[in-house]
Computed example of a mutant assay.
Amino acid sequence: MNKSDLIDAMAADAGISKVAAKAALESLTSNVTSTLKGGGKVALVGWGTWSVSKRAARNGRNPQTGAEIKIAAKNVVKFKAGAGLSGSVN
């Protein structure tokens, strides 16, 4: 399912226009992104939690040449599925 498929499904399920469904989806993604940028976490009970984790700098290898390279530290987004989502998939 891609973004346009999700918008179509949301519009059909909620009985709203595709324009309204697209606005709702963009609002969700915008708010999740801004919260994670600020260092917070987003938890939807029963569905899952997004959080930001710091990945330390490390050494790696270029797979083509075998030369050692330095990989910079960065923030990564993590998602942990909640019990409701995990239970419905299994």
Score class of each variant (00 low, 15 high):
residue 27 S to W: 11
residue 32 V to T: 14
residue 4 S to R: 13
residue 77 V to L: 00
residue 35 T to R: 10
residue 90 N to C: 05
residue 19 V to H: 13
residue 7 I to A: 06
residue 67 A to K: 06
residue 46 G to D: 12
residue 88 S to F: 11
residue 80 K to F: 02
residue 6 L to Y: 08
residue 83 A to P: 02
residue 57 A to H: 01
residue 73 A to I: 06
residue 69 I to V: 09
residue 2 N to P: 08
residue 77 V to N: 00
residue 34 S to F: 06
residue 71 I to D: 02
residue 81 A to P: 03
residue 82 G to S: 00
residue 42 V to E: 12
residue 38 G to T: 12
residue 19 V to A: 15
residue 64 Q to T: 07
residue 85 L to H: 01
residue 10 M to E: 08
residue 42 V to S: 06
residue 62 N to M: 08
residue 10 M to S: 04
residue 6 L to T: 08
residue 51 S to F: 09
residue 7 I to E: 04
residue 78 K to F: 06
residue 72 A to T: 03
residue 1 M to C: 12
residue 75 N to A: 05
residue 66 G to D: 06
residue 80 K to Q: 01
residue 30 S to N: 15
residue 82 G to Q: 00
residue 17 S to V: 02
residue 87 G to K: 02
residue 86 S to P: 00
residue 18 K to E: 05
residue 35 T to L: 14
residue 76 V to F: 02
residue 83 A to R: 05
residue 77 V to W: 01
residue 63 P to A: 04
residue 32 V to W: 09
residue 87 G to Q: 03
residue 73 A to P: 00
residue 19 V to C: 11
residue 34 S to D: 15
residue 46 G to N: 14
residue 5 D to M: 11
residue 69 I to F: 00
residue 45 V to P: 07
residue 77 V to T: 02
residue 88 S to T: 07
residue 75 N to P: 01
residue 4 S to W: 12
residue 67 A to V: 05
residue 15 G to W: 05
residue 64 Q to A: 09
residue 40 G to L: 11
residue 77 V to P: 02
residue 51 S to T: 12
residue 70 K to Y: 00
residue 32 V to E: 12
residue 60 G to H: 03
residue 40 G to E: 12
residue 33 T to K: 15
residue 62 N to G: 04
residue 67 A to N: 04
residue 47 W to T: 14
residue 57 A to G: 11
residue 46 G to C: 08
residue 76 V to I: 06
residue 83 A to H: 02
residue 61 R to C: 04
residue 87 G to V: 03
residue 31 N to Q: 15
residue 69 I to M: 00
residue 38 G to A: 15
residue 7 I to V: 14
residue 2 N to K: 12
residue 8 D to T: 14
residue 10 M to Y: 11
residue 43 A to F: 10
residue 74 K to H: 09
residue 50 W to F: 13
residue 2 N to T: 08
residue 5 D to K: 10
residue 31 N to V: 15
residue 38 G to H: 11
residue 69 I to S: 00
residue 14 A to R: 05
residue 40 G to N: 09
residue 53 S to G: 15
residue 18 K to A: 05
residue 8 D to M: 13
residue 56 A to V: 09
residue 63 P to D: 04
residue 87 G to R: 04
residue 73 A to Y: 01
residue 64 Q to R: 11
residue 82 G to H: 00
residue 8 D to E: 10
residue 55 R to F: 07
residue 20 A to H: 11
residue 15 G to E: 07
residue 46 G to Y: 12
residue 90 N to H: 10
residue 63 P to H: 01
residue 3 K to A: 07
residue 50 W to R: 04
residue 29 T to P: 13
residue 29 T to Y: 15
residue 13 D to E: 10
residue 27 S to E: 14
residue 13 D to F: 04
residue 36 L to H: 11
residue 71 I to G: 02
residue 43 A to Q: 14
residue 3 K to C: 09
residue 55 R to L: 07
